[in-house]
Amino acid sequence: MNYRVEQEIFEGPLDLLLYLIKKEDLDICNVSISRITDEYLEYIHLMRVLDLEVVGEFLVVAATLMQIKSRALLPDEEAAEEEEDDSAEALIQQLAEYRKYKEAAGDLEQRELCQQNVFSRPPGREELDSEGEILLDVGLFDLLGALSSVLERLKEEPVTEIVQDKTTVREKVEFILELLLKEEKINFTSTFAAARSKVEVIVTFLALLELIKIQKVRIKQAGQFGEIYLYRHQTTD
């Protein structure tokens, strides 16, 4: 089947029927099927002219409607009449059932609308630490910014001693974890306090990235551009 246009106006044949019944101001319980058949067919014709997608279900209902109508036109024969009543009644019952859920859907729509005007705390955007400070998640740029200011400060100190850098990432990983054993949280800058050279700072930074990656350390920031803190990740261990 060709799915070109999603027609929103009449979702299905029952929708169209309900619409026609409402338009004619008819009561669903004693609607004359014959009366709305012509109009139904006209709408289907129009939908085709407009190149709207007319799904098979529309045609099935159209056939049922025409069958009911043609039976009604036949000379009165008991059997035929009974059969007409049956299929007409079945259709009306289906319509009544469908209308209930359509109303329920309308109610859900109202509720959905209300919900769109109500807000709760967004997940994980803000957390409070034990001192009541609002903490934000830290992005890579925040970290790089903090690193560059550490490096900046290092530059200011004159070199008085030349030492060979032998620090490894593994050592620094252990160093940071040890710091976090002593305290619940540590200041980003103080992590680098012991570092005496640029290489050592960078190695420490790499260790920190590694710890974040393996989720041993969590970092949070006190407000945007605020101080960055390292925390032990509570879910591990």
């Binding site: 929708d15 859920y101 359509k102 859900l108």
Partner: peptide, 27 residues
């Protein structure tokens, strides 16, 4: 609208299978 109607049918009539939903919505 179709999503809301389908959801309403499922909410009120669950557990329900697809052809039962389609029988009500006629589509």
């Amino acid at each position: 609208k179709p999503a809301l109607e389908t959801l309403a049918i499922i909410a009120y009539k669950q557990p329900i299978i697809r052809c039962e939903i389609e029988a009500i919505r006629g589509v």
